[in-house]
Simulated scan of single mutants.
Amino acid sequence: MPPELTVWQRIEATLRRRRRTSGFWFGLAIAVIWPIVLWGTRLGWRGGENLPKSGGALLVGNHVSFSDPIFDIAFGTAHGRMPRFMAKAELWDVPVVKWVLGGGGHIPVYRASKRAGESFQGAIDALERGEIVAVYPEGTYTEDPEGWPMKPKSGVARIALRSGAPVIPVANWGTQDFLPADGKPKMFPRKRIGISVGPPVDLSEFAGKPLTKTTLDAATTKIMDAVLVLLEDLRGEKAPDRPPYDPAAAKKAAPGIAAPADAPAAPGTPVGEREAG
């Protein structure tokens, strides 16, 4: 879309186009949510040229708010691509929500289930159809006290290496101010939302290797390192020199102390290696 168009004009044009291709309920959800979101935020987008114009690609980002998918959809569609998110399968049992997700072509994730492998295959099938599949490897919004990415799950590397699709890193920042963990949107004053997309991550060193835990962990680390570089730039500061925050380890280290509540897996959450069987 021409760069001289405002964000509002891009979104409006995108809405008209996507209503024809993504189903009534998904189009309606976008039409209702986006004007509210854009009215209460100021969007700052970088790296749109790194989003492939065609063909399958895995969009991998950090997760700081449950509103991340809304803004990542806005970014993708304004640049000509509609991301398909991986979302927990239970959402397909919720009235209206299931129609929105189904109409948008999103991918159910069967966590801790014998059907978990279907989630991987669903993502790979979508990539082979030329779709953009969005994944948040942390599994939920970060519990890191400083807002940096948590320890990721390696399912994202399994999908990337099995599919061979390009992996596009994306950093989200500011969405946690618009929709904090308490679930109450804060639109005043208008929040600055930053999204930065980088070039494909080079995973050629892992090509042809067995998908062992060592290989998957190394590939996942490389992917998240690319996301971290983008996030540092958005935040204007360096990440602390320490391992990623591990919520499971934190709970074990502090028995009897209430840890941050486990949020349900948000759209974009991959199944873990154990769950895939």
Results as ranks from 00 to 15, higher is better:
residue 81 R to L: 10
residue 37 V to Q: 14
residue 89 A to L: 01
residue 83 P to E: 13
residue 46 R to K: 11
residue 59 L to R: 01
residue 31 A to W: 03
residue 66 F to I: 01
residue 36 I to T: 03
residue 117 G to D: 00
residue 99 W to L: 14
residue 81 R to V: 08
residue 125 D to I: 10
residue 53 K to H: 10
residue 105 G to C: 11
residue 56 G to K: 08
residue 44 G to W: 14
residue 70 I to N: 09
residue 114 K to I: 14
residue 127 L to F: 14
residue 82 M to K: 00
residue 46 R to Y: 15
residue 60 V to K: 02
residue 54 S to N: 15
residue 47 G to C: 09
residue 131 E to R: 14
residue 61 G to H: 10
residue 88 K to E: 14
residue 125 D to G: 11
residue 132 I to T: 11
residue 81 R to Y: 11
residue 53 K to T: 15
residue 58 L to T: 03
residue 48 G to D: 09
residue 86 M to R: 04
residue 64 V to Y: 02
residue 58 L to A: 05
residue 132 I to R: 08
residue 74 A to P: 03
residue 71 F to T: 03
residue 99 W to K: 13
residue 86 M to T: 10
residue 42 R to L: 13
residue 52 P to F: 12
residue 66 F to A: 07
residue 73 I to M: 15
residue 110 Y to I: 02
residue 105 G to N: 09
residue 80 G to T: 11
residue 98 K to Y: 13
residue 68 D to E: 10
residue 69 P to V: 00
residue 31 A to L: 02
residue 92 W to F: 08
residue 48 G to A: 08
residue 107 I to E: 00
residue 114 K to H: 15
residue 104 G to P: 08
residue 131 E to I: 01
residue 101 L to D: 04
residue 26 F to M: 03
residue 121 Q to C: 12
residue 97 V to E: 00
residue 39 W to I: 07
residue 118 E to C: 00
residue 76 G to S: 09
residue 33 I to Y: 15
residue 78 A to N: 13
residue 106 H to T: 10
residue 27 G to V: 01
residue 116 A to V: 02
residue 33 I to H: 11
residue 60 V to N: 05
residue 64 V to M: 04
residue 124 I to A: 12
residue 89 A to S: 14
residue 61 G to F: 05
residue 103 G to V: 00
residue 128 E to I: 13
residue 29 A to E: 12
residue 103 G to A: 03
residue 83 P to R: 13
residue 61 G to E: 02
residue 97 V to A: 13
residue 96 V to D: 02
residue 41 T to W: 07
residue 70 I to C: 05
residue 66 F to H: 15
residue 50 N to T: 01
residue 32 V to M: 04
residue 104 G to S: 11
residue 86 M to K: 04
residue 54 S to R: 15
residue 87 A to R: 01
residue 29 A to P: 07
residue 59 L to K: 06
residue 83 P to V: 12
residue 40 G to R: 07
residue 122 G to Y: 06
residue 62 N to C: 05
residue 129 R to L: 11
residue 77 T to V: 15
residue 100 V to Y: 12
residue 51 L to Y: 08
residue 133 V to L: 08
residue 63 H to A: 03
residue 91 L to V: 04
residue 125 D to R: 15
residue 33 I to E: 14
residue 29 A to Q: 11
residue 116 A to P: 06
residue 94 V to L: 04
residue 97 V to G: 00
residue 28 L to Q: 06
residue 50 N to Q: 07
residue 71 F to C: 02
residue 102 G to C: 06
residue 116 A to W: 01
residue 35 P to Y: 04
residue 78 A to V: 07
residue 79 H to P: 01
residue 38 L to A: 13
residue 128 E to A: 15
residue 80 G to A: 14
residue 58 L to C: 09
residue 59 L to E: 02
residue 85 F to L: 09
residue 133 V to G: 10
residue 40 G to W: 05
